[in-house]
Structure formats: structure tokens, C-alpha cells
């Protein structure tokens, strides 16, 4: 993907660029909002990563200007403010996602992946399948290798979320936001426990585990 990164902290920007380059993206790094505006107006990007606080032109104003100019490229806002309204303000201004510093590179890259391949609503799809794991979206029944699996409602949502994104890393915060719609960090191991429960049903009785943990990064349903 061709990505524009606007980050005024050179060191952080360089690290992010390096990390994203290593994942096969091509990254242009600019150090202020005005350069980001010029750059994004002259070249098409698949994704913009904008720091919220930048000299010359802050990320939020830049984003508003881009949206006003009908630039529809997906935008991830990076921010040093973890406040209550910050996320809402960012999303209102037209950001597609929002990340509070400091963040794990894996978190950013998982979110880039999610934006790049947003699940398209396929109305005709009534069944999801990953390897021998199947999920009937009409009867809400899961089965693996022909064995029916009983799921609690939230386990069903969690599994559906993973099955719609096979092979893609899902971080803890992404799961908290998507499955439980909460935007704060519970102190206890909520996600871990639910994943472990789900694993107990879809993986444990079978030979090949599908739901894998990437330590320090997140989880992935690997076909």
C-alpha cells in the first residue's frame, strides 16, 4: 500500500516507516501538516497516517481540509491525547481509526490491514468457512469437521468477527471495540479469557489449532 505518514517526531516517524516498509508498504514520511497537505493533494495515497499535534497545520485541521476537498483515502489519526472526547472528535472530523500513543507497531499494522480490507457486506453469504470450521450465519450454528459446537452469544460474535477476517491479526483493543463496544482498557484479562473459552470449543477437541496468539501483538484465525 502507498501510505503517507505525517509525524513531527523524526525518530518515531522513522521507526514507523521502517516497520511498515518491512511489511511491504511504501511509506512517504513528512514532518509537518502543511507538507502533508501538499503531498496528499499531489499524489494519490491508499492510506494516510496523521499525527494529531503537528507544527504548521495540526492533524485534525488537515483531516478536515482533506475531507472538504473530497479526498476519501482512509485516515488513521495518531494522538498523544487519550482523552474522552479526542476519539469522538477525530472520528467526527472524518478519521477512520484512531490510535493513542505510545502504541505497538503491531497495533498500527493490524489497524492498517483492517482498513485496507474492510469486510465488504456480502448479502448472499450465509455461511463462513475457515479451514474445516464453519459458521452458519442464519442459524448461528458453528461446526468443525462435522461436529456441532454450542456457542454463547458473545462467543458467536467473537468467532464471527474472526471468521470474517481470516489470517488477519486482531489486537486486544480492536476486539474490545468491535465485540464489546468499549473504548477503555479493562484491567483484567477480559479478551484473553474469552479467547481461551472460545479456543476450548473450536480448537481443543480438534487436532489443528486455528485461533493463534501472537505474543505482544494479538490474535489471528489462521486457515
Amino acid at each position: 500500500m502507498k501510505i503517507l505518514l505525517a509525524e513531527d517526531d523524526g525518530e518515531t516517524g522513522a521507526y514507523i516507516s521502517k516497520g511498515l516498509n518491512a511489511e511491504g508498504h511504501s511509506v512517504d514520511h513528512v514532518l509537518n501538516g502543511r507538507d502533508a497537505l501538499t503531498q496528499s493533494m499531489t499524489q494519490p495515497y491508499d492510506l494516510l497516517i496523521l499525527d494529531r499535534m503537528m507544527p504548521e497545520l495540526d492533524g485534525l485541521s488537515l483531516l478536515k481540509a482533506l475531507r472538504a476537498a473530497h479526498n476519501t483515502a482512509p485516515v488513521i489519526l495518531l494522538t498523544a491525547m487519550g482523552g474522552l472526547d479526542e476519539r469522538v472528535d477525530g472520528l467526527k472530523a472524518g478519521a477512520d481509526d484512531y490510535l493513542v500513543k505510545p502504541f505497538a507497531l503491531a497495533e498500527l499494522s493490524a489497524r492498517i490491514q483492517a482498513l485496507a480490507r474492510r469486510p465488504v457486506l456480502q448479502k448472499e453469504v450465509t455461511e463462513l468457512q475457515v479451514a474445516d470450521l464453519k459458521l452458519d450465519l442464519l442459524t448461528r450454528q458453528a461446526s468443525r469437521a462435522g461436529h456441532e459446537i454450542d456457542l454463547q452469544p458473545r462467543e458467536y460474535l467473537l468467532l464471527e468477527y474472526f471468521m470474517r477476517r481470516p489470517g488477519r491479526v486482531q489486537t486486544r483493543t480492536m476486539l474490545l471495540e468491535a465485540v464489546w463496544d468499549i473504548h477503555f482498557d479493562p484491567k483484567t484479562s477480559v479478551v484473553e479469557t474469552h479467547i481461551s473459552r472460545l479456543r476450548g470449543k473450536i480448537d481443543k477437541p480438534f487436532n489443528k489449532p486455528l485461533l493463534q496468539t501472537l505474543h505482544g501483538v494479538g490474535y489471528v484465525l489462521q486457515p
Partner: peptide, 24 residues
């Protein structure tokens, strides 16, 4: 708070960028 947040998170972010690649 905005200033403090920015001034504190920027070095923390840099710190993480130093640690994370080794951890990974």
C-alpha cells in the same frame, strides 16, 4: 494537560520504538 500529554507520550513512544523491535 495537552502539553504534558504530548511531552510525556512523545518520549514514551520513542522508548517503545526502541524496545519493540528487539522484543519482536
Amino acid at each position: 494537560t495537552t502539553d504534558v500529554a504530548h511531552d510525556m507520550r512523545a518520549p514514551l513512544t520513542r522508548l517503545r520504538t526502541k524496545l519493540e523491535p528487539h522484543y519482536l
